[in-house]
């Protein structure tokens, strides 16, 4: 049995549009919905099947035309394509479906890949491009020029500095491009919780006098921890005075501690302290919640809030639901690159 059978019906690339049309004509009880083109690109063997399962989940809340691409540049040049639809009941009644086109390309693919993708986009809908893994030669200026939202995960990169510099060049060329790093998305709830805690009048009193920041992270999520630190530093206007050392605007010295643990949630602790006041957001491994706390002498308040999801697919779903230009990420990026 063909290992790609679960990708749907195999079709000739030139017949994709016609076959998709037939697919819809077979079933008039379903609604075809799409708010975006979502391209998922992988060079990992077997990634196509994995991504098809991800798209099945993702389309429950994010209507899109999904275009999945797996590339194997080692083999002889060839191209195969499949079409299918992921259908879900909406409100327990209506069947809402999203189209999926899958491509498996082998050989040298740069130009072929780009044209294959471009010719199957739904017109007028934004193009969200989820690039999985390291940036490769396929990542070219011409490809990026048509992307509206680029999703990457810097925690999977060997050399984040080099990769980000390529992306920043692309941002210069394509000003409408929004860049989303899943490492940054991974700490959204942590950042929202910290921001929320500093609305408290007790916590506000220490903003200018913070002395210590402690962040604990899983070994594979150092980039996320550094991005949190960069965010705190940029937003509070701290001056970098050395490796993990800062100074507040009023001259208070800040020591940052970044601790890795194999037995930790991606981020398990962000603790900001000054004197006896501690603002803390923590997460037990595998817990679905964050614990938000402020402790200052006898004063103690706490609450729970949702934790950031861990699977990349869930992070992408969060990101798609949230939208936005993500300009804050570009703002903290230079500080983050300095910390790496």
């Amino acid at each position: 049995m063909d290992k790609y059978a679960e990708l749907g019906m195999e079709v000739a690339v030139s017949q994709i549009d016609g076959e998709l049309k037939k697919l819809w004509e077979q079933d008039d009880a379903s609604t075809n919905a799409s708010l975006m083109n979502l391209v998922v690109f992988t060079e990992k063997e077997g990634g196509l099947l994995e991504n098809s399962r991800i798209i099945n989940d993702l389309t429950r809340e994010n209507a899109c035309r999904a275009i999945l691409v797996e590339i194997n540049s080692e083999a002889d040049p060839s191209i195969r394509a499949w079409i299918t639809a992921h259908c879900h009941l909406s409100g327990g009644k209506k069947s809402v479906c999203c189209e999926q086109i899958s491509f498996y390309l082998t050989g040298r693919v740069t130009g072929r890949f780009r044209n294959t993708v471009f010719s199957h986009l739904n017109s007028d809908l934004p193009l969200v491009f989820w690039w999985q893994g390291e940036l490769s030669d396929v990542f070219t200026e011409r490809l990026v020029s048509v992307i509206d939202r680029l999703i990457v995960d810097s925690s999977a990169w060997q050399n984040p500095k080099a990769s980000f510099s390529r992306i920043l060049e692309s941002v210069d060329d394509n000003t409408k491009l929004t860049v989303q790093d899943l490492a940054w998305t991974r700490c959204w709830q942590f950042r929202a919780s910290i921001a929320g805690l500093f609305d408290d009048s007790v916590a506000q009193t220490i903003i200018g006098n913070i002395e210590k920041v402690k962040i604990t992270h899983h070994a594979s999520d150092r980039n996320t921890a550094l991005q949190i630190l960069a965010w705190l530093a940029v937003q509070a206007g701290w001056k970098s005075t050395g490796k993990l050392l800062f100074e507040t605007r009023n001259g208070t010295k800040i020591i940052a501690e970044i601790e890795a643990s194999e037995d930790s949630a991606p981020i398990s602790l962000v603790e900001i302290s000054a004197g006896e006041t501690v603002v803390r957001v923590s997460r037990e491994k595998d817990s679905a919640h964050l614990l938000r706390e402020i402790q200052s002498g006898d004063y103690h308040v706490s609450s729970l809030s949702p934790a950031d999801p861990e699977p990349s697919a869930d992070l992408v779903a969060e990101q798609l639901a949230r939208g936005g230009k993500n300009s804050l990420f570009l703002k903290i990026l230079p500080q983050f690159l300095e910390l790496i």
Binding site: R191, A192, G196, D199, Q204, I207, L232, Q235, V301, G324
Partner: peptide, 15 residues
């Protein structure tokens, strides 16, 4: 609250 940037698509609810 300098950390509120990026969470400003709505007004800030206060404790």
């Amino acid at each position: 609250n300098p950390f509120r940037e990026d969470f400003v698509s709505r007004n800030r609810p206060e404790p």
